[in-house]
Each structure stands twice: as structure tokens, then as C-alpha cells.
Nucleic acid binder design. Structure first.
Length: 227
DNA sequence: TCATTAACGACCC
DNA sequence: GGGTCGTTAATGA
């Protein structure tokens, strides 16, 4: 099985002027989705670009044996979608909400026209995509070469940077996260994840409770770099 | 040696 | 009762 894992952090519209953001608001029909809704499968694929305004999504694939592999988790501000000339890698994937979610849709035609009118946005897209590639090199090396403990350490660092909220000396990952899902993200299994998480908890690098993890970021980084 | 698999049981909505 | 989590014995690369 091909076990690759990455997280994309695309914040395309971060630095757009207010007028542009307002215009996006106006031309994008938005929808409200409940937790647990599947908004795309490989057979219900639509072209277009989507802006995630609130909530979280998981993007995953299912291999022929039926094993789920979580490619990415997106939070508010992230963008995903596909146009023929332009791909965020979401074709052939399942997309499912893991929280109540507020989503804006931008059609292919509208997005391309929007882009033509704003060349600086194209430059930003290129920067985002190349930054994504650079990050992914480092992450993939760790995930392909490392053992399960290292993969989990790496995953905890990324999740706590992307979804963390400070809580004393620890950073709480603001997302319900089962051991099964962690296994699905790194290409491992639930039993192994449970064992490793309990080890890390014993070493005071993390605090775990049901569906929740708090990370001592500096300790986790130290453990990863002194393996 | 490290990880997977499968299974049982406990705990908690 | 279904999902989650702790544990462990057997098996494999």
C-alpha cells in the first residue's frame, strides 16, 4: 500500500484587500453543513474552488482493501478544489465535515475571471503552492523513514501548529481526534497508536483524554530531534 | 526488533 | 449499543 501523508495549509485569501474579500462574499453562494456530512466522493466530483470559512473538513482516500487514509485536515481559511489547469489535489478523494461547517463555492468561470482581474493573486497562489511543496518534502521524509513514534511526534507538531490553542504549558489540539483517526493519518493502526500515545503521556510530552490531546510542543520537538 | 492483527473487556455517551 | 480506548498474544517482515 502506498502510504503517503501530508497536510496542506493554503491560506490564499489571507492578504487580499478588503474590497476583494467583499466581492468574493458576494459572488460565492455559501452553504452550511452539519458535522459528519460527506460533501464529495470520487464519483460526485465537481469542478470549482471552495473556501472554508468556518469548521473543519477531512480529506481522505480509501484503498482497495477498504482502509481509510486521511490526506489532509482543513480548517477555516483553507481553500480546496479543482480546475482543469489548477489542482489542490482533491480529485478522487472523499471530503467529509468533522465539525459544523460554513463553506463558500466559487465556480471555475468566476474564479478564473477573478484571477485574470487580479494578477497579484496568481503570484500568491504560486508562492503558496511552492511553499507547500517545500514543507511536504520534509514531512514526507520523516513519515516514510521514521518509525511510528516519530510519525506521531511529527503529526502532533503539525496538528498543534495548525489547530492548537494554548492551554497552560500545553497546546490543546482543537479537534475531536480518535486513535483510529490518528492511525489513518500516518498509515498505522489503532492498537499501535494507543501504545505510543500512552508512552508519550508517561514521558509528560502530551496529556491525553478521550478524543482529546494536549501537546507540550517543545518537549515533543525535542523528542523528535533526539531519536 | 518493531509493528500489525485480532480479540476481549471496560468505559462512556 | 455503538464508538472509543487499554491490553495482550500470536504472527510477520
Amino acid at each position: 500500500m502506498n502510504k503517503l501523508w501530508y497536510l496542506s495549509q493554503i491560506s490564499l485569501f489571507d492578504t487580499l484587500p478588503k474590497e476583494d474579500l467583499l466581492e468574493i462574499e458576494q459572488i460565492t453562494p455559501s452553504s452550511v453543513l452539519k458535522k459528519g456530512e460527506i460533501i464529495q466522493t470520487p464519483t460526485t466530483f465537481h469542478e470549482g474552488l471552495y473556501l472554508l470559512k468556518k469548521g473543519k473538513l477531512k480529506l481522505y482516500k480509501i484503498n482497495p482493501e477498504g482502509k481509510q487514509f486521511i490526506i489532509s485536515i482543513l480548517g477555516a481559511g483553507n481553500v480546496f478544489g479543482e480546475l482543469d489547469s489548477f489542482s489542490f489535489g482533491t480529485r478522487d478523494t472523499f471530503i467529509e465535515t468533522i465539525e459544523d461547517t460554513f463553506l463558500c463555492a466559487l465556480s471555475k468561470e468566476k474564479f478564473e475571471q477573478f484571477l485574470i482581474d487580479r494578477p497579484y493573486l496568481a503570484v500568491k497562489i504560486m508562492k503558496e503552492l511552492s511553499g507547500l511543496l517545500n514543507e511536504r518534502d520534509a514531512i514526507m521524509a520523516q513519515l516514510v523513514l521514521g518509525n511510528v513514534r516519530e510519525k506521531i511526534l511529527q503529526l502532533l507538531i503539525i496538528l498543534s501548529k495548525k489547530f492548537g490553542v494554548p492551554n497552560g504549558n500545553y497546546i490543546k489540539i482543537d479537534m475531536p481526534l480518535s486513535h483510529q483517526e490518528i492511525g489513518d493519518m500516518i498509515g498505522s493502526t489503532r492498537g499501535t497508536v494507543t501504545v505510543v500515545l500512552n508512552e508519550l503521556a508517561k514521558e509528560k510530552a502530551i496529556i491525553i483524554s478521550r478524543m482529546s490531546i494536549e501537546v507540550n510542543l517543545s518537549e515533543v520537538e525535542r523528542l523528535l530531534h533526539t531519536q
